[in-house]
Design a protein around this nucleic acid. Structure first.
Lengths: 157, 157
DNA sequence: GCTCATTTGTCCGTATGTATC
DNA sequence: TGATACATACGGACAAATGAG
């Protein structure tokens, strides 16, 4: 696939291959990580990085440190199946708030309920709740529980 | 050998002698230089030049400025042993291209390899490569190397 | 708060090859 | 012929960010 002797540089060839792959995929889908490219194409990490950097300069992908590189420009919503677990849980709760099954000034499900429902660790549930709190969807009363915020404080989203 | 008192002019006599010499030699073989004729026959340079010019008018020899005079009409391929080094190198590369051991869009051997192979200086190798480039046999990509041109751009030979 | 794995970010050193003077 | 600079490519090392437990 890659030809080190070819007219084009290896990183150019690699970015061309990746661009073709990405062309058909919806925005937010993860691109192979640098380590994966090393394994798949047998190149060094710096070469894999240069290939991705070229796509980034073209606006074909965007990168989030610690998470990965994703198709499309930054700011794009990521498909649910590629979102981190805590965001998926948060999205589920938001959905129930908007649907009205969770109402303002009423408690959201307990940590234990959410843990069993999603099959995750406590820390992950806490992460999801902290995320909702940061965005204004819920507020927490010490020793009492976490409640849905009044509608005025919901994010305008 | 030469008779200044003779019926024919000295340059005529000289050209006759040279024509006999050349008669048996394959085309492309170098004829004695003007300076060599001066030494050998004790004539002036102008006389030597007039003798050679006569042979040139007869089509027996041809002259390349800065290189010398050679047996046969111009355009004749010169025997390898009388070609300049850079042309020998170029000829070797062309041979490998035509034989298929160097293929289009593939690198030709590096400068260093050619240097060692032919035992010449870098400048000589560059001269050979520039020569091939001028003729359309190869093209150079900066910082990458020199590649065999696609067959369409080869000289019609 | 901690640990662990993954991923990206940054830097250094080396080798090869070309470009220029 | 030699010296210098530049560009690619590889490999290693460490830090930082993130997600998950």
């Amino acid at each position: 696939m890659l030809d080190p002797e070819g007219v084009n540089h290896v990183y150019i060839q690699l970015s061309d291959i990746l661009r073709d792959r990405i062309a058909g995929s919806p925005p937010g889908v993860p691109v192979a990580s640098e380590a994966a490219l090393q394994r798949e194409f047998g190149v060094s990490r710096s070469t894999a990085r240069r290939a991705i950097q070229r796509l980034r300069e073209e606006g074909v992908v965007h990168t989030v440190a610690g998470e990965g590189t994703f198709a499309g420009p930054p700011g794009q919503a990521r498909p649910v199946e590629y979102q981190p677990m805590y965001q998926r849980i948060a999205a589920g709760i938001i959905e129930r708030i908007l649907a009205g099954s969770l109402r303002p000034n009423r408690r959201i499900p307990s940590e234990q309920t959410l843990r069993q429902q999603y099959g995750v660790a406590t820390a992950t549930v806490r992460h999801a709740v902290a995320y909702l709190r940061d965005q204004g969807w819920v507020f927490t009363v010490p020793y009492r529980g976490t409640y849905v915020s009044p509608q005025e404080t919901w994010p305008k989203a």
